[in-house]
Amino acid sequence: MLMQFLASGFMLGSVYGLVALGFAAIYKATRVFNFAQGMLMATGAYLAVTGSVVLGLPLVGTIAFVVVAAGTLGVVIQWLLIRPLAGRPLLAMVMITIALSIILRALIVIIFGGGAQTLRLGLPEGSFVLGSVRISAIHATAAGVSWLCMALFMVFFRFSKAGLLMRATADSHEAAVLSGVNVNRINATAWALGTILAAIGGVFLGQLQVASVELENIGLLALPAVVIGGLQSIPGAIIGGLLVGLIEQLSSGYISPKARDIFVYVPLLIILLVRPWGLFGERELGRV
């Protein structure tokens, strides 16, 4: 039983981790706390519906479509909403992302209608047994792809020039500007990456159930995940996502599903009080 919970928590947590990673990428580069991350995830599921059902693309085509469309969306968001607000106080930044999620939700419902959409990409179905644990193929695929994306992101962030510039900008905005880095382009890249990661998470969650705007609320679990892990830490986001997935499965399994909120948000509160920079983050300003 416990192994089973750990396994399913790990797989679910991997998807959360992916979404949280996108969130952290945006935060680290642009200092925007993106409350729309959940809605971007739901948008990813609808992009997959567009690709596979509306356009009739095969699996590879759909994936390419989702990645390109989500990347474009991220750039557009940065250009249209985030850039004009550069240098404005925190509340404006938080609120613009909330406005973004309201707008995205309305647009999705206008285009696709309020009902859920079936999303079937032809990914492997069925299940297999590993030791004492039963694993569904789709969960395993979701986890595998999530880890692959996370690895790709880490490689990009560590070793590519754009990744280097991104880290430099995150460390010191002024220094980056002074040394002639095109900060806007870096920010747009961060938004594109963050949106793509959220969208891929959305494709899998949509595949596990249905594509609907209510996926937003699952995506919002990336918020506590990323804070528990540490806002400033990229690995922290992934581990935070895993933790939230495990907490969800264990609390639902052994106590009650309602307890999830308590077991996610009480630790969040404690972390905020004791170690606001998160489990893996570095101490920074923002404390009294």
Binding site: L90, L273, G286, V288
Partner: peptide, 11 residues
């Protein structure tokens, strides 16, 4: 008393 800004929003 301990945190502010974004961290306070989250609390």
């Amino acid at each position: 008393l301990r945190v502010r800004g974004l961290y306070f929003v989250l609390s």
